[in-house]
Each structure stands twice: as C-alpha cells, then as structure tokens.
Design a protein around this nucleic acid. Structure first.
Length: 143
DNA sequence: GCCAACGTTGGC
DNA sequence: GCCAACGTTGGC
C-alpha cells in the first residue's frame, strides 16, 4: 500500500456525506488550524481519507480519495491556508462510531480520539485495516 | 447546556 | 517571552 491514509471531519449540517456524494468532487475548505493545514500539505493524489461526521452522528461514514494536492484556499482572504480536492470513493454500509473506536484497543490511540479538535488527522496502516474490519470492508477491494 | 482541550490575542 | 483572558471545537 503506497497511499497514506487520513481522516477528515465535517459537521453534517454544514457539509454531510450526502453533499459529498451529490457533488462528486469538492475542495476541502475552511481549515484554519496549522496542524490540520500541515496534514493537508502532506496529502498526495491517490491518498485515501475517512470521512467523519462530527458533532452529529460522530461516526465514519465513507472514504474519499485525494484528486488534487494542496493549493491556496479560495475562501481564505489572507493567511497560508490551503485546500485539497477530494472525490467520494465508497460509502460505508456499516458505519464506524467514535464509541467503537474509543473502545477498540487499536483505534483508541487514534489522533481523532486523542485530539478531538483536529479536523484533518493522519491514520496509521493498522488503524486503517482495523477500521475496514469494523466496517466489514475488504481493503484489497479498493486500495 | 456544560465543560475540557487547545489555539490565539494582548498586556506586561 | 510569559501568561491570563478569551474564543472555538466538539464530546458528553
């Protein structure tokens, strides 16, 4: 597996997975945190990212794929902020809740769990595999 | 609605 | 450069 894995968060009432599916492709804007921005800068075309619903839902609902690497955020009037372009890759039939991740020995150490305010975070390969397992997915099917 | 975690701002 | 005050995010 050459791709790195990430996790991006969105509040469903601002931009839900359904919006992502409807748009087909979007630029991931609004990141105003340097750590999250640095993660965006490290994303490469072909990388995958889990799509997490924060606040409401609090679960991973799908996977997107990076289709364009970081470029200046068109919605930012100043500052070093960037966006990437992503496309929906697949919808989870079995979503994975935050409670499940917290209770899981592998996933309880995730940046998502430890740093709840970070909106773009890295996912390790073992976390990725475990989440696929919890979602009843075969990673070999799409990686 | 409350609060913990964390980032930012501004006085000194 | 420190730190108190304040704002925001997001889980509970």
């Amino acid at each position: 597996m050459n791709s790195r894995i990430w996790l991006i968060k969105s509040e469903p009432f601002k931009y839900a997975w359904e919006n992502m599916l409807a748009d087909g492709r979007t630029f991931w804007d609004g990141v105003r945190n340097h750590q999250a921005k640095n993660n965006l800068l490290e994303m490469r075309v072909g990388d995958f990212a889990f799509f997490y619903h924060s606040n409401e839902g609090m679960e991973i609902v799908g996977i997107v794929q990076v289709v364009r690497e970081a470029y200046p955020d068109p919605t930012a009037t100043e500052g070093p902020w960037v966006v990437v372009d992503v496309e929906p890759k697949l919808s989870f039939e079995t979503t994975v809740s935050l409670a499940q991740l917290k209770a899981d020995p592998i996933c309880s150490g995730m940046a998502l769990v430890r740093q709840s305010r970070l909106s773009v975070s890295p996912v390790t390969e073992s976390e990725f595999n475990r989440i696929c397992e919890l979602a009843n997915l075969n990673p070999a099917g799409f990686v």
